[in-house]
């Protein structure tokens, strides 16, 4: 599958190309819609970075963005891994909520380094049943690096469910972290959730 450039989309070819690329016309998710989601996500992130809000104000904004654009239930389920099998539904719910706040603070902090920088969508391609949207991150005084988003419509809505920064996978990183937190607390899920809320 060819990598489609942004320019190709804006010249009106997008409808034709997307229709040719999607095997089932019933599928709501297309290259164009996957790219649209990430374009909107990038625009929102850039807006928050440029807003000059206080740190805690920014984290709130990032939490809103995370909830709006990502498949939060899948990300939380993946991060908990096999331990989810022994978790009660109340624990799963509490974990989802705590995890969203934790992710927003953790990655929001990193986005601070983005001040003065920008993300740019460079291409989309279909992978199995979902789409991969490639972007380049331009940071001040640093060579641009690749950030990739995976978008699926599993939930009925187009949402991103994983992100790779130079090959480093957000889901795997967080599963490792949550797993290590559980190990340290002898597998105590409630304790892990309580501590996750406190983590900055």
């Amino acid at each position: 599958m060819p990598i489609l450039t942004r320019r190709l989309f804006s010249t009106g070819l997008c409808g034709v190309v997307a229709a040719a690329a999607a095997p089932t016309p019933l599928l709501a998710l297309t290259e164009a819609s996957a790219e649209k989601l990430i374009d909107a996500l990038v625009a929102d992130i850039n807006k928050v970075i440029a807003s000059g809000k206080s740190e805690s104000g920014m984290y709130k904004e990032f939490e809103r963005i995370f909830a709006r654009y990502s498949d939060t239930s899948y990300i939380a389920a993946y991060a908990m891994g096999v331990d989810a099998r022994r978790a009660s539904s109340a624990q799963k719910k509490a974990f989802s909520k705590a995890f969203q706040g934790y992710i927003s603070r953790k990655y929001g902090k990193r986005f601070r380094e983005f001040i003065g920088g920008k993300l740019e969508v460079t291409g989309v391609r279909k992978v199995k049943s979902w789409y991969e949207v490639s972007t380049l991150a331009y940071l001040r005084g640093q060579a641009p690096f690749e950030v990739t988003f995976h978008v699926s419509d599993r939930t009925g809505k187009d949402l991103f469910f994983n992100m790779y920064i130079e090959g480093v996978n957000l889901l795997l990183t967080e599963r490792t972290e949550i797993g290590a937190m559980l190990d340290r607390r002898k597998g105590n899920i409630d304790q892990m959730i309580a501590d996750l809320k406190k983590l900055s």
Binding site: Y74, A77, A84, K92, R125, H150, N162
Partner: peptide
């Protein structure tokens, strides 16, 4: 880094959004 432009080298490493039970989350 080593996979370079060989995009399919990463395919096996991808997580499948349908492969996990998200019930309750």
């Amino acid at each position: 880094e080593l996979a370079g432009d060989d995009q399919d080298a990463n395919l096996e490493l991808y997580t499948d959004p349908y492969a996990i039970d998200t019930e309750g989350f």
